[in-house]
Nucleic acid binder design. Structure first.
Length: 360
DNA sequence: TAGGCGTGGAG
DNA sequence: TCTCCAAGCCT
């Protein structure tokens, strides 16, 4: 199934001509600036173009150069990232911007091997930047490309296993155009995104239908092979929004857990869905004290929030403290006024609740 | 190395 | 309501 030299030339010619006619005009394709290409690649990791595009516009506007990004506070970067998910991408991106400024005089390394050393850049992203910005002939194999390669070339090894990845990589190195690797990589990705789509691809109009393994064997639904075992954990979260005047008590999530670096409220996790605060175990003496001093109001709506590997059932209470009370907050918490709360990076769930409660 | 890490859209 | 998944990476 792996094409010979002549087939590779024919494959590349067809692929490139398809790309030139069909590709979407996306802003990061209009530049050779490695900084902007890097931004776009990090934003687009596990993210659809439609979702990432507005973030790319905002980031390039707010931080036109790597120096601007390096000079920003991490909190500010996370706030701009809010809603995109996988927040470690933003933290790593900020870290790497500072490294590029401090260790590389603001210039990105120009080979995939060196790019790979930077935090937040894996095999795919390093190859993408190296080929798009510096025309290095390395295959950039993302989910789209795995799918295209598995189907056309009939590669049946598990794309999520290390062995499988090696095989795709080896074939990719054979097939990539040495004359124009940048366009080859863009074209493979775009072909997967527009033509060779995951479900129900329209193969009758495909330029490769005469030489596609999956089409010949009607295995579009079976390829690529992905063996994944995902266990979804159920969690029950109980949030107390401590409010005094217009100020809310929030704290930064620092543990190795979801939403690291983002801000939320006083949280009590329970093993079962809770109905009343009385049924919760409240070990925190400071918070027990607060409960006595404040007025507790339940937000009746039960929120469910779905992450890749967790299903959250979340209940919220307002805990309003009279302005006259002088109080201590649980450890690590601080009060933020309305404007500050708006400016803090928050999980989308927290932002949604504050909007529905007409606070934001 | 396998499991953790968000959010939103589509079927 | 459920499943899949979308330009993956880190530990």
């Amino acid at each position: 199934m792996i094409p010979g030299d002549l087939e590779v030339i024919d494959f590349n010619r067809r692929l490139k001509s398809w790309y030139l006619e069909n590709h979407r005009p996306l802003p990061w394709r209009e530049t050779k600036d490695p900084y902007k290409i890097w931004l776009s690649e990090v934003i687009l990791q596990q993210t659809r173009v439609a979702q990432g595009l507005p973030y790319y516009e905002r980031f390039t506007e707010q931080y036109p150069t790597v120096f601007d990004l390096a000079a920003a506070d991490e909190r500010e970067v996370l706030r701009l990232w809010q809603g995109l998910g996988y927040y470690s991408r933003a933290r790593n991106m900020h870290f790497t911007a500072r490294q590029v400024v401090n260790d590389y005089q603001g210039k990105f390394p120009e080979t995939s091997e060196k790019l790979l050393k930077l935090k937040g850049l894996g095999q795919y992203t390093a190859a993408a930047i190296a080929s798009f910005a510096f025309d290095e002939a390395v295959p950039a194999i993302d989910g789209n490309v795995y799918r295209v390669m598995a189907r056309i070339f009939g590669i049946q090894s598990d794309m999520l296993s290390n062995e499988g990845k090696k095989e795709f990589w080896a074939v990719g190195k054979e097939v990539i155009s040495k004359e124009d690797p940048a366009t080859y990589n863009q074209a493979m990705i775009e072909f997967g995104a527009l033509q060779c789509v995951p479900s129900s691809p329209n193969c009758t109009v495909c330029i490769f239908k005469d030489r596609c393994f999956a089409y010949a064997h009607q295995m579009q639904g079976q390829l690529p092979v992905k063996i994944k075992k995902l266990t979804v954990k159920h969690r029950f979260l109980n949030y107390f929004i401590i409010k005094q005047g217009d100020r809310l008590a929030m704290y930064e999530r620092r543990a190795r857990d979801i939403w690291k670096g983002l801000y939320d409220f006083h949280l009590i996790e329970s093993q079962t869905p809770s109905t009343t605060p009385d049924s919760l175990t409240i070990p925190d003496l400071v918070f027990q004290n607060l409960l006595k001093k404040g007025r507790l109001t339940e937000i009746p709506k039960l929120y469910s929030h779905i992450l890749t590997h967790q299903r959250l059932q979340v209940r919220f209470w307002w805990l309003e403290i009279p302005e006259s009370e002088r109080i201590d907050l649980p450890h690590g918490m601080a009060f933020y006024n309305h404007e500050e709360v708006e400016g803090l990076p928050k999980p989308i769930l927290i932002d949604t609740v504050l909007r529905e409660e007409n606070y934001l």
